[in-house]
């Protein structure tokens, strides 16, 4: 779907980080946790590409999508300056979301900083299905644990980690000794992804990772967002993050 939506609010939440809320009922209706949208919110041909963003929140009743962003370059600098009632072109929702099944009893969502954005949507969806959720989120500082209140508010058990010498997955490893998890979902950090892959060798749970890449089209056409994937015979093979991903079984990547 390719539509023009209106921004409802856009605010900087802490220096260098913002949240934008978009009114896009058709996309909110369809979006699944882990999917992403391509956005264009400027006139003219510079910047040239639309920008991919993971979906942080969906409110189907209210018809809104929430995006959490970090100001890192030309595209997000324009986004940070965008007025609250701006028009935004949205292509999406795109890609494959996180596999989530009825009958799961407990899952882990793991992420770091702004990269953990899609985990909130996943956690809230899982909670609405009656699935127990433990969130393990790391960040540089307490104020970068952006969605802590939301996780706690939706009934997740939240573990935040701002100590650079401790991996947040160590807390997950401790919990794995005590309780069974059906699945773990990770994004926003290669280090955390590797840790989840290693833990999935030791314990019986399904591990999934959501990857980020620079994209031109977001729909599988340009083949620019390629990522190396494991093959049985070790041959060279790539998958497109936008089309085959952005969610992959963690064993396919690590």
């Amino acid at each position: 779907m390719f539509i023009t939506a209106k921004a409802l609010t856009n605010r900087i939440i802490t220096p260098g980080f913002g949240r934008i809320l978009l009114s896009a009922p058709q996309i909110a209706e369809q979006a699944k946790p882990g999917q992403f949208v391509m956005l264009k919110y400027w006139r003219g041909i510079d910047p040239f590409f639309m920008r991919p963003f993971s979906i942080n929140t969906v409110d189907r009743a209210g018809g809104t999508l929430g995006i959490l962003y970090k100001v890192v370059g030309q595209g997000t600098e324009i986004l940070a300056d965008l007025s609250a009632d701006a028009e935004v072109e949205i292509l999406g929702p795109r890609g494959n979301g996180f596999p989530l099944e009825d009958g799961m009893t407990r899952i882990a969502v793991i992420g770091r900083g702004v990269g953990a954005a899609p985990m909130r949507f996943l956690a809230e969806k899982a909670r609405s299905m009656g699935i127990g959720v433990r969130a393990y989120i790391s960040a540089n500082s307490e104020e970068h644990l952006f969605d802590k209140a939301a996780y706690e508010g939706s009934g997740c058990t939240f573990t935040g980690c701002t100590d650079p010498n401790v991996k947040v997955t160590d807390f997950f490893a401790e919990d794995l000794k005590k309780m069974k998890f059906d699945a773990a979902y990770v994004c926003g950090s290669k280090r955390l992804m590797k840790a989840v892959a290693e833990l999935s060798d030791e314990y019986d749970f399904a591990g999934y990772v959501s990857l980020e890449e620079h994209m031109a089209c977001g729909i599988g056409a340009c083949k620019g967002c390629a990522v190396r994937v494991n093959t049985k015979d070790g041959s060279e093979a790539y998958a497109r993050v936008c089309k085959e991903g952005p969610v992959f079984p963690v064993k396919r990547i690590v």
Binding site: D46, F49, R228
Partner: peptide, 23 residues
């Protein structure tokens, strides 16, 4: 054809560079 190693694309002023490698 597997295509080239990433990164394969880059944005440029009013355009882009690509080296997909005919995947």
């Amino acid at each position: 054809r597997p295509g080239n190693k990433p990164p394969r694309i880059a944005e440029t002023p009013s355009g882009m560079l690509n080296a997909i490698g005919l995947m």
